[in-house]
Design a protein around this nucleic acid. Structure first.
Lengths: 214, 214
DNA sequence: TAGATTGTTAATCGATTAACAATC
DNA sequence: TAGATTGTTAATCGATTAACAATC
């Protein structure tokens, strides 16, 4: 459909456009110009038009953009027009928090199973989703359609488990472990890292700079 | 100490340097050149040297960088050489997961209290940290030293609570709600957004592109 | 000293912003 | 038609990479 080679910076911004358009939709706003949207989002109108034109001409001169249409189109670009089965490997607090989080399911990311190493978690359910033992993982992957694996294990275990995942056909990992899995896994495996501790450190950096001002 | 005006791109990379240096330290590596580090981290040696030189000359010609020293210096830059008291507002699954997560505490981010609106959570403890009711928040902020507030409430509640936080002196918010608090709060309030759903959408985007290839 | 590697300046590349012709 | 606003090209800005003199 649309070209590869879209810059990472543009892709990072797409979900934010999608969110703002969703809010406009809730507010029953029918159309919006790049100028108005730029004011709300605090980005330049130029950037909005450039970004969108990477994927196609979604607007109309003299009118602007139809909110419902643009929301829908960006949704398609992001792959939100269909369901994605997800499993969560690591049924600790964070894994369970993700399983409990309804908003992912509402965007089409459906958690179908959890996995853990701890025998005491076997058979437990979270939001009616069962916790399996990690040695059942290969079998499960071969008998179920799983697109995304959320990996919420400590680093030490995550690296080894990631290899097992990839060996059994997994092509997309949502990685919460403090390690850069993308560097150790084959290039055709998509890794999206969520490094919470790094986020907290950036906050701490800014806090420290601010305190120095005084 | 060091200059303001360090680019956002550089700051984003600092925690990653810190992590790699920590691992080298664990492996008892004493010194490392920008060339060796660049190979491990898959960035250019030039970038490493440029990044570090924003903060000072930490290396030595002909030798490279002393791992322990550099790790320590970056830690100081990130404000990791001291403790930061944190409270978590929103004691749902995610808030509790953060409270349970020991690695933050180990980096000096100490969770001292949780807050929630739900009366049934009052007095509950997570990792020996007590859950308070949200109406006690102003009083608590005035009588305790709190540097960071992790905000793990749904968007609808988060916006209003953020105003209360700021009105009571909070200057740094680690925001997990799906909204850009930085746009509604005063500029002197530091907001670090963690938008998990946006991260998942980027994963979905890449997955969708990959499937189109076939 | 010779070799290695930094710190730093200069060159390149990419991303953002501005400008404006096309067009609804 | 006139006005508004896009799509797109050109100009600017900033970030990354390359090169090399300084120096340990």
């Amino acid at each position: 459909m649309e070209d590869k080679g879209i810059s990472r910076a543009v892709i990072k911004r797409l979900p934010r456009y999608y969110r703002y358009l969703g809010e406009l939709l809730e507010d029953h706003v029918e159309r919006i110009s790049s100028g108005e949207l730029s004011e709300r989002m605090k980005v330049t109108a130029s950037q909005i038009r450039q970004d969108l034109n990477n994927f196609g001409g979604f607007g109309q001169q003299g009118y602007g953009y139809n909110v419902a249409y643009l929301h829908d189109e960006i949704g398609k670009i992001l792959g939100l027009n269909r369901n994605h089965n997800m499993i969560i490997v690591g049924a600790g607090h964070l894994g369970q928090a993700l399983a409990n989080y309804g908003s992912f399911a509402r965007s089409g990311f459906k958690t179908v199973a959890l996995f853990d190493v701890k025998p005491e978690l076997a058979g437990k359910t979270v939001q009616n989703i069962e916790v399996h033992m990690i040695d059942e993982l290969p079998e499960y992957l071969h008998t179920h359609h799983v697109e995304i694996v959320a990996l919420t294990l400590p680093k030490s275990e995550a690296v080894a488990v990631a290899d097992v995942l990839v060996a059994n056909g997994v092509r997309a990992i949502w990685n919460f472990a403090h390690t850069d899995l993308n560097l150790t896994l084959p290039h055709n495996v998509i890794v999206e890292n969520v490094h919470l501790s790094e986020s907290l450190m950036r906050l701490s950096y800014n806090l420290t700079r601010q305190e120095e001002q005084k």
